[in-house]
Computed example of a mutant assay.
Amino acid sequence: MYVSDTVDRVDDRRGPTRTQRERTNATRAALVDATLDLLAERGWAATTSVAACERAGLTRGALVHHFGDLPTLLADALEAHYARLSAEIADEAAPTSLADLVETTWTVIERGRFKIVIEAWLAAANDPELGRAIGPVVTRFAKLVDPAERRDLAPDDATRALYLTAREAMLGLALGRATAQGPLPHERIVVDQLIELARIHDERRGGTP
């Protein structure tokens, strides 16, 4: 009887705690998703505390209680976006040549919500205080398209220079996409040309054609 009563009391204590945790997680997730939606749709300047709370259907007090301030919410939202993007990339075949690496980089950049990454890079560069809050996750985003992460495919200066040229061209396309609010009519032609240049370089180096 005593043991049974004890178990019931423990369960009673755990029940509300578990429910509160679920409510907390749901509130945080709603604010994170609302923030990412705003960043993708309206840009960094329009992603304010008020706008995020309105989109999530929550009060400003909820944001302050769960995140403290907007920069912390932005950092958490970017962390969530990075985790999702990394998971998507992990499901794809690993590149085995420079041409593959260029194509894989484009599959990262062409994703509709890569605009959020560009917005974060620019915001971190222009606002030192915000940069301190979101800097670590911005650095991780940068590594997704950093040739230093794949020295096996870009082992020398000439190969790295070619990859960086292709990457910067594709980032330019991404900026154009953000401005046009959608894919550009010429982007596939540009990307195919960049992949072809990388393929030719692979052949000259004796890599995978």
Rank of each mutant, 00 (worst) to 15 (best):
L58H: 08
P95L: 01
A62L: 10
A75I: 09
A62K: 10
V64G: 00
F67P: 01
I134A: 08
A51S: 13
E129H: 12
V102M: 03
L101C: 05
E110P: 02
E79S: 04
R132N: 12
D69G: 06
G112R: 09
I134C: 07
N126R: 14
G135N: 02
V64D: 12
E54C: 04
H66F: 12
S49N: 02
L85D: 00
L122M: 14
V64P: 01
A124E: 09
L130Q: 06
R55P: 03
V117Y: 00
A93E: 10
D91F: 10
D127L: 04
T72M: 11
P71G: 09
A51H: 07
G112S: 08
D69A: 15
D100L: 01
W106C: 04
L73I: 02
H81Y: 14
G61T: 11
E103A: 12
A51I: 05
H81N: 06
L130Y: 01
L85A: 13
R60L: 14
K115F: 05
S86Y: 09
A125D: 13
D91P: 00
A99Q: 01
N126D: 13
L98H: 03
R132A: 10
A80R: 15
L98S: 11
V108H: 04
E129D: 15
I109E: 00
T72N: 11
R113K: 06
V117R: 02
P128E: 08
I109S: 00
R113D: 15
A99V: 07
E110G: 05
L70I: 05
H66D: 02
D69S: 15
K115N: 14
A51G: 10
S86L: 04
V117C: 12
D69N: 15
L70Y: 02
W121N: 08
V64K: 08
E119G: 14
D76C: 12
G61C: 06
A90K: 06
L70N: 02
E119W: 00
R55A: 12
R84S: 13
A90E: 11
A123I: 06
